[in-house]
């Protein structure tokens, strides 16, 4: 707060932009740490995922026996985080039936993908799961934590947010679709849905449900939709090539 006393902006416009920058930094909670965004190649809106804050991915299914994490999407994000940070480990936390297969982890890709760098953790109870997520987020060895976060309350997510800030890992929380309305401390919440694809590849649509403090930086805003397609050879998720059925808005953004 000493900045108020020290800085005497000369013009009104300067003062407003200075204050806006500080509000943004406070909202993003990574002021001064210079964490870079982890993504590239998806066009501007989602490129501003940063380490040290929680990201929630709701969907594609509901909770219960059929519930799954969007594994290919999360594996892609985790491998991107690995490329950016100097750490090289990823922890997956969730029940054993949700653990990814090596092909989701990029087995067969040149550098071996995440297979040898992934730790799979299956906590028996909900409180153990919360403890494990907290512990992994705080570990300085971990680049990304992918966790099943079904049923976490606001207090739980606040605790995890503090852990993510302390550790600086990319925090990816997968939640079932019905958690979409639950209050949470996460900075970004996206809704993930399977959509039919005219090509023979799996496709998802990702709708940004809310994003805290991202608007100014990247133009990210709630309601924005992005379509991603799984690419088998590289194990990546990509924005599909220009096609007739893409939403006009997304194509305009991508072109820009």
């Amino acid at each position: 707060m000493e900045g108020c006393a020290l800085l005497r902006p000369t013009t009104r416009a300067d003062a407003i932009s200075e204050l806006a920058a500080r509000v943004e930094a406070a909202e993003r909670r990574d002021a001064g740490r210079g964490w870079e965004s982890v993504l590239s190649g998806w066009g501007p809106p989602l490129e501003s995922l940063v380490c040290g804050v929680l990201h929630e991915w709701c969907g594609p299914g509901r909770s219960g026996r059929d519930g799954t994490m969007p594994l290919l999407l999360l594996a892609h994000l985790a491998s991107q985080a690995l490329r950016q940070r100097r750490r090289d480990r990823v922890v997956w936390i969730g029940s054993a039936r949700m653990w990814p297969q090596p092909h989701a982890l990029g087995a067969g890709v040149d550098d071996g993908g995440l297979v040898d760098r992934s730790l799979l953790v299956d906590p028996p109870t909900g409180s153990d799961r919360l403890w494990a997520i907290d512990l992994c987020l705080r570990s300085p060895a971990v680049a990304a934590v992918v966790a099943d976060a079904a049923g976490l309350t606001l207090a739980h997510t606040r605790r995890l947010q503090l852990a993510a800030e302390a550790g600086g890992a990319l925090a990816l929380l997968a939640r079932p679709l019905e958690d979409l309305g639950m209050p949470s401390a996460a900075a970004i919440r996206c809704r993930v849905e399977c959509i039919p694809s005219p090509t023979m590849r799996p496709r998802w649509s990702i709708t940004i449900n809310r994003c805290k403090g991202m608007q100014r930086r990247s133009g990210m805003e709630a309601g924005h939709t992005l379509i991603l397609e799984h690419h088998r050879a590289t194990g990546c998720l990509r924005v599909p090539a220009q096609l007739a059925d893409r939403p006009a808005q997304a194509s305009a953004r991508h072109a820009g």
Binding site: P102, L105, A107, V115, D116, S118, L119, L120, V121, D122, P123, P124, D128, W131, A132, L135, C136
Partner: peptide, 15 residues
């Protein structure tokens, strides 16, 4: 993790 959850609940994948 292994001490609190049990060694078989924190695993690695081997091909």
């Amino acid at each position: 993790l292994s001490h609190r959850l049990g060694a078989d609940r924190a695993v690695c994948t081997r091909l």
